[in-house]
Design a protein around this nucleic acid. Structure first.
Lengths: 217, 217
DNA sequence: GTCTATACCTCGATAGAC
DNA sequence: GTCTATCGAGGTATAGAC
């Protein structure tokens, strides 16, 4: 990559095969460190060590910690929302739609346990960054979800519920347990064994609770 | 407070009327700043400004940022769990118990919007600190909750559910919407008006969804 | 107990040789 | 593109007068 565009806006990242290999390597390392330590807690030196490159390289490719953090944030959000897309296909029945969303969420949290906690934490301190990113990454989420919901309500499959209520319900049920896992574990006094059993059974359990909660009165 | 015990372990904080007024003032300021900025993002100077005292006073009373952060964390957790206690009384019917818990949670989030996000964020980076604090602050949460649950299940009021499943369900439904509010808002494409309407109606809505989800099949 | 001044250090960022 | 060396800001913490 030529020097004059070595610091592209993070929103303009080219497709993978067009990006310098070293750049991807640094981004991967930064991803791991920022997710572990949080943006403020992370150190550029630690990211450099994790990427096995010199600290100067970080600035060469991303100019500043701020920009590097933004690139990592964008990628984390993209990764999160990418998981939802398959469930959104219009011909999937509502029950399966709910199940697919829950399964996708849980799979993501198994693959990337820090991801949701990181996003929530960043959201907490940089709310303005969030809005902008979502608009960019997931512009038409509303339409697909709303269509699904309208059809299910019209068919009498579920009780009337707004898109916002439904989304909050679903996201809360699937995202929170892993994020606040420690809190709930301690609060309910669960042992490691009980918690593992809960995690293993949560897929069926969540689908059940959600569908039961939504069924017409 | 005499000099020789000006730096007590944060777990040994004396009752309010025994604590130096300046100390409480600093703790209050630190609470506000740490919750806004996160522990790593917070600056001692900003806390001093917020408390209208000299930066040296922070070190005089709490010796280090680390200890001050620990004191703030303990207090935040204590504040959170204190809200649950009234609902735990044994003679409250199950429906009211659920409603009281939800109302208490939501009231807390209205009073202290940053509290849950802060705790989750800290939990994320200092998991070891958490376990210890819970054991100290809320040692018998399990017994009271389990008794409630057993009675309701035995009476056929709700479907069989473990304490861990129930707690996760309840906490997820009440804590998450405020914490991840921005996420859900953006995802569902809600306007400010829709979101406010949702917040206003969420008490009835959550109680309804929870009780409906829990009712026997 | 409260202030000023400052020591000491870590970190992000840059300069400049190669 | 990659290295070494270093700058300078800003951070925590402390010394010491009052």
């Amino acid at each position: 990559m030529a020097l004059h565009d070595a610091h592209p806006a993070v929103t303009d990242l080219a497709p993978p095969d067009d990006i310098d290999e070293a750049e991807v390597n640094i981004l991967d390392a930064a991803h791991r460190v920022f997710l572990r330590q949080g943006t403020d807690g992370a150190r550029m030196q630690e990211i450099a060590d994790e990427a096995c490159v010199n600290k100067s390289m970080l600035h060469y490719y991303f100019r500043s910690k701020e920009r590097l953090a933004e690139a990592v944030f964008m990628r984390a959000v993209r990764e999160t929302f990418r998981r939802f897309e398959p469930a959104m296909q219009p011909d999937v029945p509502f029950r399966d739609f709910v199940r697919d969303l829950i399964v996708a969420d849980l799979a993501m949290m198994d693959d990337h346990p820090y991801l949701v906690g990181y996003i929530i934490s960043e959201l907490h301190h940089h709310p303005e960054r969030w809005r902008q990113t979502i608009a960019l990454e997931f512009p038409d989420g509303r339409t697909a979800m709303q269509a699904k919901l309208d059809a299910a309500i019209a068919a009498g499959e579920i009780r009337p519920i707004t898109l916002l209520e439904f989304t909050t319900f679903l996201v809360s049920m699937t995202f929170f347990p892993t994020v606040g896992g420690g809190l709930v574990r301690a609060y309910a006094g669960a042992t490691k064994e009980e918690w593992d059993a809960f995690l293993n059974g949560r897929e069926a359990h969540f689908v059940d609770l959600c569908l039961n909660g939504l069924r017409p009165a």
